[in-house]
Amino acid sequence: MKTIALIPAYNEESRIAASVRDARSFVDGVVVVDDCSVDRTGEVARAAGAIVLRHVINRGQGAALQTATEYALDALNADALVHFDADGQMVAREIPMMLEPILSGEADVVLGSRFLGRATNMPFTRRMANRLARLFTLAISGIALTDTHNGFRALSRKAARELTVTLDRMAHASQILDLVKVRRLRYVERPVTITYSEETLAKSPSSFRAFGIVKDILKDKFFTRI
């Protein structure tokens, strides 16, 4: 079984090397998509041992993940994929635990959950925003999860082929859940640790950006499929 970690990255030169090195110890290869960073993210990632694909125009995290997925499946012939992050919020030691249900054939999709595990110092507003997101996802996709916007995932080759992400920005997380349901893929949740630091909080989506996500999902549901 060939396992590949996918890391979408945008302006992460200070943190990407650690992410790549950590992930490499637990998978057969790491693909970083440098989403048109203005810093040295790409070079740093390559030096740390990743295969780097560069977007010549910034297309968003969803688009970057899809690019990495297609490359891992077509060029690297991956059997299982792990979605990992560039900014050190996720713990690489948890990768084998995430991959286990795929490797054993128990599930096609493994979704990380901050609430089954122990999220390290999660701010109150995030907790509330997440609760709303859970309700929203249940209403829109009919899928009941404890954590709907967790970027830590593992996918079998089959699942990765079926989960084609077309929402380029942050709403891809909801789209993935939607497709899991639509394509009737077998999924399980696993507890993961997410560490929030001042630095990553400043960069990652605020609760306000959630409105943008909701907008993208509704737009996709009601307009683009016509």
Partner: peptide, 25 residues
Amino acid sequence: VRQEETERSITQVVRQIAVQHPSKP
């Protein structure tokens, strides 16, 4: 709708360029 299609086309092109030029360690 048209703008959404254009956005998707741009992503497709950007993706093609990216996967055709991987820089390996």
